[in-house]
């Protein structure tokens, strides 16, 4: 322990989704905030157990959709009446009825961009490296293993105390992860 590299935090493995859920609940009740659970699939009820607020993604999607809506209407109105007016069968140069299909498609398209790229942004993806990649066993997280990590940056974090807590909750293979 002489050479002290900075600690990123602690990582513990749990046996199954039920144990992980209980552990997350307990860690939260102890007042930790900078902790995370890692699982091969989303676990029902984990957001509540960790005390997370709902995803903010919907607002990004709404912004995308409104941008698409305005772009669609403006593009068709401007192109048809200002930039290149075409008189065809005496029909009006612009009417909202015929503008609906293109407006709808553009709204959907930009909403979808908002959903996907907004999700990447909220998740800070792509993230090619993470301190947890140093832990060999952590590779199993995309297969059948369940982990809980507590970051050293958490105000409640204390190497010995936190380790004991994880142990008491049934965590196995507890390791200190270097930054």
């Amino acid at each position: 322990m002489a050479d002290r590299r900075r600690n990123w935090g602690l990582l513990a493995e749990f046996q199954n989704p039920a144990r992980l859920l209980e552990a997350a609940q307990a860690v939260r009740e102890r007042g930790y905030t900078k902790f995370e659970t890692w699982s091969p699939f989303p676990i029902h009820g984990m957001d509540d157990a960790m005390g997370l607020k709902g995803s903010r993604l919907g607002w990004i999607v709404l912004a995308g959709g409104l941008t698409g809506l305005t772009t669609g209407l403006t593009l068709q109105w401007w192109a048809g009446t200002m930039a290149y007016p075409l008189v065809i069968g005496g029909k009006p140069l612009f009417a909202w009825e015929f503008a609906l299909p293109v407006t709808f498609e553009l709204s959907v398209l930009l909403s979808a961009f908002g959903a996907v790229f907004g999700m990447f942004a909220l998740n800070r993806m792509p993230k090619p490296f993470h301190p947890l990649d140093r832990v060999k066993r952590f590779k199993k997280v995309t297969d059948d293993a369940f982990f809980l990590s507590i970051e050293a940056g958490d105000p409640k974090f204390d190497l010995e105390e936190s380790r004991k807590l994880l142990e008491s909750l049934g965590g196995t293979g507890i390791v200190v992860v270097e930054e």
Partner: peptide, 15 residues
Amino acid sequence: GWRGANRHWQNYERA
């Protein structure tokens, strides 16, 4: 860089 963090799953499922 997907690692199955629950905060990621939350936004992912919403998306």
